[in-house]
Design a protein around this nucleic acid. Structure first.
Lengths: 153, 153
DNA sequence: ATCATGTACTTAACAGTGTTAACTAAAATA
DNA sequence: TATTTTAGTTAACACTGTTAAGTACATGAT
């Protein structure tokens, strides 16, 4: 019987996640960066310089996908590349100040959007949701760590 | 002060949504359908036949984007098109039995994946999350209705 | 009744993201 | 030192989304 609840919650959570993001995504146009580019930038912003491989692992996409996004962001001087490490193969990607700034704005807009939607909740209700997100975040972190994940967006 | 909580929750919810979906997405390859195609199919499955315009509104994308996905799904006989209405311009798209079946499987896999992640929660914790998702779903529905939205995935 | 406008959809051209396969360069290893 | 492995890039291709232009049906004014 407990499984029914589990399934219902999974179902709801899945739907909610889709809808929340779909609506938040609307705000992205303003920033001028696509969600993928913004996401990569925010990883660098939240957890510092990373190699191309690290980024690929975090974003769960291939190396070429990362290379291209980094190329683009580098062109706009939102990130920089350097190879100064003991291992000459590794490229270290770092967010520039300009990049950090743009990223913050984009994220703020998205979160703001979500916050507005949540603002219809009463205080008690908000507290319930707060408890839940804390629990879910705990789960999140468990999946984040094995892959050496950072605050991936 | 309440705004701090609101913001924290919005922030967490946003992150969680991204991560939940990113991980669930991994299961999509098995189904053979991309998330977008699956999503469109599931709208038809959950809320019946829809016009191209309806689908575009629900998915919040342009008409041509829908046309193309419908073309593809039609080629696989997962949906069918018909123009039998009093208004000869409107195309009614319907999920075929084959489509319904495939969709159910895809969705089940995704939800299953989410459920597995949630299964580490204790009973009390699960109940807290259940309360929260119910609240969030209520918000969801408010945004769904104005656009005449259906169970969009 | 017909001519003009509007609506629903399609087609075409283009940009962005993801993939795999093939290539280059720098370690690591035999 | 020669070979293999690892990190990253480049190229070619599939999918999704966009806007602009075209087609066909509906509606509304003359």
């Amino acid at each position: 019987m407990q499984d029914d609840l589990l399934n219902r919650v999974a179902n709801q959570l899945h739907s909610i996640a889709i809808h929340v993001l779909r609506r938040a995504r609307v705000t992205d146009k303003e920033g001028g960066l696509t969600p993928e580019r913004l996401s990569l930038l925010s990883i660098l912003a939240y957890s510092g310089p990373k190699s191309i491989s690290d980024l690929a692992a975090i974003e769960m996409v291939s190396l070429p996908a990362i290379t291209r996004i980094v190329n683009y962001l580098e062109g706009l001087e939102l990130v920089s590349r350097d190879r100064k490490s003991d291992d000459g193969r590794i490229v270290r990607v770092t967010a520039t100040k300009k990049g950090l700034q743009l990223m913050e704005e984009g994220r703020r807009r998205r979160v703001q959007h979500v916050a507005e939607e949540l603002s219809s909740l009463g205080n008690l209700e908000l507290m319930v949701v707060a408890e839940a997100t804390t629990l879910l975040e705990r789960i999140d972190h468990r999946y984040l760590e094995p892959a050496k994940r950072a605050q991936a967006n």
